[in-house]
Design a protein around this nucleic acid. Structure first.
Length: 491
RNA sequence: CGGGACGUAGCUCAGCCCGGUUAGAGUACACGUCUGGGGGGCGUGUGGUCGCUAGUUCGAAUCUAGUCGUCCCGACCA
């Protein structure tokens, strides 16, 4: 078994090795598309279940809309089509036939579609064309719908989980009678994302709004959560858009208010994707493999028996381990007793570290004699001998501790990588030598943002919510500024 | 779409420059055995149209041309 490329040697290679060797996903026969393997999909299922619960707690329902969108829909909202046109997969025909000149099949030229269909890159258009039929009165509002789906964006260059041509996500699409209510919804869902990321994935995030350049195509305001990876690059972990009346106007969706006046409907959309798995990996993992926060880990505890020739001792180990499994399960802990005799203990230790299982319990004859087990934490790699008395509850508490410690560690790292910068020289130096977020004054113009991006690749990740207002001058142009914004190089 | 690299066993790669028996190694896999507290030792064995096509040659993994594909760097990336 080969080892991973070290994080310090080549971060990108480390990431790729890790995804492949831990069995999360692999590349597929289709360029840019990945196969999500069972272990990777288990992560997604856990995230999905938790998010779904939180969406329903905030009053949303799931529905499903088609994967195909008539081409004409994309042209109805000008900014929207500008944003997505370059990366759309297009269906032009609906039939194949045998190649009359030889073997194989060809596209039947007689089966050309009257109007081409777009494979959804996002569903605003198909959904708002539907909402037009659903909304006549303020009594029909709000509509609070989410869908779990796949979308396709024909990216030039892809990376497992971080940017794939097809990815899984959820997209919420809500319709409201007032601007205030829509903004409230946009902010509510941003909070849902932020608390999910922090509580469930142990991923600290900064809530903010995007600059005009980085805004979603068709949105009036894009809220986001930004996370920091271990290489100092930022990752947009989720977005929540206030769409104003743009899509209502594009699809002519009006409602009669209480005074029987017709008004366009206000909209939001919000989404997170399988990209979050990439963020999870990059935020916590190390050179030995994945490090998973317990709440998201498919497996919380693995018990590895240490056998020897003594068959009586073996029976004792098995018996104790099976009992421990029962106790842990009754506490809601996902546990596996790996008594596979064909793999040796050392191999198993390495394997479960690669997989990021938060806690490993090693149990041998020697331990049983002393009434202890060797318990190893994945996050700190600390091993300790713990009493077998009440071991199950000890482990349950340990999992909570690990969840919390992982969040705190990531938080400390991020806090240590937000650098206040007041000169262009310091800006460039910080970016080059330290990375992370740079809090700097910006004159608020797209031109300055563009210049900074072309010079350094750094973009404005967000203008943090509740940002401190202070007088200053733009780090690039020297023009007056009232607040600092966060710059970073991003994935 | 520009620049670079690479396609040989399931995987990682050597061999190619300088053509010549039956194409190698590590790892994985199967069986046996000794083992078992950090990716075990020994033994036996399975596994290959050398990406594809055409050419040069008595002879091509090796040389030539074309082609397909992958990866990296750039451009692109709500």
């Amino acid at each position: 078994m080969s080892t991973l490329t070290s994080k310090d040697t080549d971060y990108a290679q480390w990431y790729n090795d890790l995804i492949l060797k831990s069995g999360l996903a692999e590349n597929s026969a289709v360029r840019g598309c990945m196969v999500i393997k069972p272990y990777g999909f288990a992560l997604w299922e856990n995230m999905r279940d938790e998010l779904d619960k939180r969406f329903k707690e905030t009053g949303h329902q799931n529905a499903y809309f088609p994967i195909f969108i008539p081409k004409s829909f994309l042209s109805k909202e000008a900014a929207h089509v500008d944003g997505f046109a370059k990366e759309c997969a297009v269906v032009t025909h609906y039939r194949l036939k045998n190649d009359p000149n030889g073997k194989g099949v060809i596209v039947d030229p007689e089966a050309k579609l009257e109007e081409e269909l777009i494979v959804r890159p996002t569903s605003e258009t198909i959904i708002w064309s539907t909402y037009k039929n659903w909304i006549q009165s303020y009594r029909d509002l709000p509509i609070l719908i989410n869908q779990w789906a796949n979308v396709v964006r024909w990216e030039m260059r892809t990376r497992l989980f971080l940017r794939t041509a097809e990815f899984l996500w959820q997209e919420g699409h809500t319709a409201h009678a007032s601007k205030e209510e829509a903004i409230e919804e946009t902010e509510r869902m941003l909070d849902v994302y932020a608390s999910f990321a922090e509580e469930f994935m142990a991923l600290p995030v900064i809530k903010g709004v995007k600059s005009a350049n980085e805004r979603f195509a068709g949105a009036e305001e894009t809220y986001c959560i930004e996370a920091l990876m271990q290489d100092g690059k930022a990752l947009q972990a989720g977005t929540s858009h206030f769409l104003g009346q743009n899509f209502a106007k594009a699809f002519d969706v009006k409602f009669a208010d209480k005074d029987n006046k017709m008004e366009y409907v206000w909209a939001t959309s919000w989404g997170v994707s399988t990209r979050l798995i990439g963020g999870l990996v990059m935020a916590h993992s190390d050179d030995q493999g994945l490090v998973l926060p317990p709440k998201i880990a498919p497996l919380h505890v693995v018990i590895v028996p240490i056998y020897n020739k003594d068959t009586v001792a073996r029976e004792k180990i098995d018996s104790y381990a099976n009992d421990l499994v029962k106790q842990l399960r009754s506490l809601g802990i996902r546990v596996k007793f790996d008594d596979d005799d064909s793999a040796r203990p050392g191999w198993k230790f390495a394997e479960y570290e690669l997989k990021g299982v938060p806690v490993r319990v090693a149990l041998g004859a020697r331990d049983l004699e002393n009434n202890v087990a060797e318990v190893a934490r994945r996050d700190t790699k600390v091993k300790s001998s713990l009493s077998l008395n009440n071991l199950a509850t000890t482990l349950k508490d340990l999992l909570d501790t690990i969840q919390n410690d992982m969040y705190q560690k990531a938080l400390h790292y991020r806090e240590a990588h937000i650098t206040k910068v007041d000169s262009w020289e310091a800006f460039e130096n910080t970016l080059k030598n330290k990375g992370g977020f740079i809090a700097a004054h910006w004159d608020g113009t797209p031109e300055t943002e563009e210049m900074i991006k072309s010079l350094t690749k750094a973009t404005i990740r967000c203008i943090p919510l509740g940002n401190e207002q202070e007088e200053g001058v733009c780090v690039f142009s020297g023009a007056p500024s009232k607040q600092r914004v966060l710059f970073a190089i991003a994935y």
